[in-house]
Design a binder for these strands. Structure first.
Lengths: 156, 156
DNA sequence: GCGAGTTCATTGGTCGGCCAATGAACTCGC
DNA sequence: GCGAGTTCATTGGCCGACCAATGAACTCGC
């Protein structure tokens, strides 16, 4: 039973498994894998992004953070609340502009930085295992193109 | 006047911008884009996967569905509850084995099938816009490899 | 036939993500 | 100086997705 028996016309372009489908599946696996590796650090999948940004940038406004991470402001608010509760970030009202919240990584959080970096390196190797340099380069390049394609969606 | 380097090109290369990061961003954009296109159909991002499976397979057990979609059973339960409430699926206890739930697409749901197919085709083109055949082939191939890499994560 | 184990679905809890709407604070025009 | 508009963060509602634990139903061993 190697070939599908009931293959009615279906789509005009190749198989029923488009790239989109694979991409979705891969991304879920990737996220899951990352979350698992991240577990010992106490962070959840997605939070490490935020922390890495803070570690790198220092003190940033919340709105900047949302823009950098390309996330909805409400998402950032919730994530920060949890991270604050966990003692990973510190939030403060900007005295100059009382609307904005200034966020920075807590002193203790810096202990996690190398761990997170290692996790990411491991995940990266895990993901790209068995791919030669050429493939990696091609993948990065194509991914970048696709990102541009999809980014131009919501121009307004 | 805080020191703020030109932010716009910071995402390009140089710093610790691994593939993982881009992949995560791309997948979010992809999902978002899909959700937007899917909106007119009344389905949410992720549900179309499930419906496509049902349309193709007919009546399936819920556990089978979870395995096929590679989702947690609890996720499937919730999704199905909502889809059932929306009239898109029909659930029934298997009389032979009263543990299992048999799920199938509702008759009305079939009206959505071509719409969803079109949305997916559009998303596919959108995603891969500007890529030549060679790049598409390479991307699909590499993605497939990566999927295999990440799938072998949870064996132990 | 009855108890141990397994399979299956559900529930409850948590998190990431979105949108829409609200309200607080600042900016600008007049 | 005051009102209109904008920016910023938060809230509430919703969905996808995970894990852990529970309970119902079946299977198998004895």
């Amino acid at each position: 039973m190697t070939s599908e028996p009931t293959r009615t016309e279906a789509t005009e372009a190749g198989d029923d498994g488009p790239v989109s489908q694979t991409l979705a599946r891969v991304s879920r696996l990737h996220r899951l894998s990352g979350g698992r590796l991240l577990r010992p650090t106490g962070l959840c999948s997605g939070q490490e992004f935020l922390m890495m940004t803070l570690w790198k940038e220092g003190s940033v406004r919340q709105s900047e953070l949302a823009k950098t991470l390309d996330l909805d402001p409400s998402t950032v608010t919730l994530m920060l609340r949890r991270l604050e509760q966990g003692g990973h970030v510190v939030r403060m009202r900007d005295p100059q502009d009382r609307r904005v919240m200034l966020v920075r990584a807590s002193a203790e959080s810096y202990a996690l930085r190398p761990e997170v970096a290692q996790v990411w390196a491991r995940l990266e190797e895990y993901t790209l295992d068995g791919l030669d340099d050429e493939e990696r380069e091609a993948f990065a390049r194509i991914l970048s193109k696709i990102e541009k394609n999809l980014s131009s969606t919501d121009d307004g």
